[in-house]
Amino acid sequence: MTRTHRLIVLLAAIALLGAVAVGATLHAAGRAAEKDRTQPGGPEVRPGPVLLDAPGRTVFRNMAWGPHRDELTSVPAADPGGARTASGVRCLRFHSAGGTGVCLQAVHGKLRDGYRALVLDAHLHERHRYGLSGIPTRARVSPSGRTVAWTVFVSGDSYAGTSFSTRTSIADAASGGLERNLEDYRFFLDGRPHRAADLNVWGVTFADDTRFFATVATGGQTYLVRGDRRERTLRSVHRNVECPSLSPDGTRVAYKKRVAGVSSDAPWRLYVLDLRTLRETATAEGRSVDDQAVWRDGRTLVYSLPGAYGSDLWTVPADGSGRPRLLARAALAPAFPAG
């Protein structure tokens, strides 16, 4: 074989290997694109329009592997495990009410990554944008849709330990005005002014546009607090309450409570507090719930637990009866529009 022939054979082999590599890459990409639908037990996910105020639809973050992972998706409320419509909008944390959404996103830059909060209208169009100083963890919208809140970790990345710091902000969805840090509010512990360098606030849940509940941590204790934006105050209500969620009628708070005798890595159980009597009721969920539960209606709580795709949604009655039931696999951060 001449030198010219050897060169032709070498070039042909290189071209063949390149074609095989490209083909394999395209095949793998195609399989990844289909993974939402073909992986056993995985939900069907297809792109399409998503509205935050569509009656009879539930919106949540899709956790299924594939091209639509982390996108806000919509499903029929009557069939939460059914086919999903993916919006193209990606969120790490999400909530919506009154036709307004708050979406906490990762931002990938050339020099470094970061996070931001977007206030969205009912069509998922951006209304306001805010840079975040830490890792997104909680988000809520007031029932009217006029006020939004979010919490980020500014140090540490878990509520389970004690070496973490949070920052909670509240924004006006109409004007864009921002209260950057609720730690600037006056805190009253058992009716007395209390100042502490270790104060942390997280997990806002709104009663209306000016009144809310949240968690305050100080001195190694956590407290349910009642917040007032006009007075700029936080007043303690009950101990050992984290990530509260106010019921639709405003009379009860679902929350995660630390219980004794369990692993420090999984210390919480899901409880409900009657705000009139301060009577606590343990739900039938016996696993550790590290989430801010959502009220599906006046009787049922929805929350996330670890699953094969990262997170699944479960339900349990709020009155302590019944048992936990799987609502939707590969899902996180649900919102249930009224109507």
Rank of each mutant, 00 (worst) to 15 (best):
L326F: 10
R61K: 12
A83C: 01
G18E: 00
W202I: 05
E280N: 09
S311T: 03
R299D: 02
V204M: 03
V107M: 06
E126F: 07
D209R: 01
D53L: 07
P67R: 15
Y255R: 04
P40N: 08
I14R: 13
L326D: 00
T218Y: 08
R226F: 02
T233F: 01
G88D: 13
S288K: 03
R258H: 10
L92I: 08
Y309C: 06
A197S: 14
V20G: 01
A33G: 09
G66D: 01
L51N: 15
V9R: 15
G219T: 14
G99N: 08
P193F: 04
D113I: 12
D312P: 10
A335H: 05
R93V: 14
F206T: 13
Y303R: 08
A331Y: 05
G310L: 11
V272G: 08
Y130N: 04
R93W: 00
S165P: 00
Y271M: 12
A335Q: 09
Y303D: 01
S142I: 04
V22P: 07
N200L: 06
L275G: 12
G41C: 03
A12M: 10
Y115T: 09
L92W: 00
W202E: 10
R84P: 00
G145V: 04
T151G: 12
A207I: 02
G322C: 04
R37E: 02
R296V: 04
V154Q: 08
L327C: 07
A78I: 09
W268Q: 10
V20D: 00
R138L: 15
R146H: 07
R112Q: 05
R276P: 05
F213M: 04
R229A: 15
S304A: 15
V259L: 10
T218L: 11
S96W: 00
H125V: 06
Q221G: 02
D172Y: 07
A174N: 14
Q105K: 05
L111G: 15
V152L: 09
A122T: 11
A260S: 11
F187A: 11
R276S: 14
V262H: 03
R195N: 02
A328W: 03
D121Y: 11
H5W: 12
P80Q: 08
P337K: 07
G220Q: 12
V241N: 08
W295G: 07
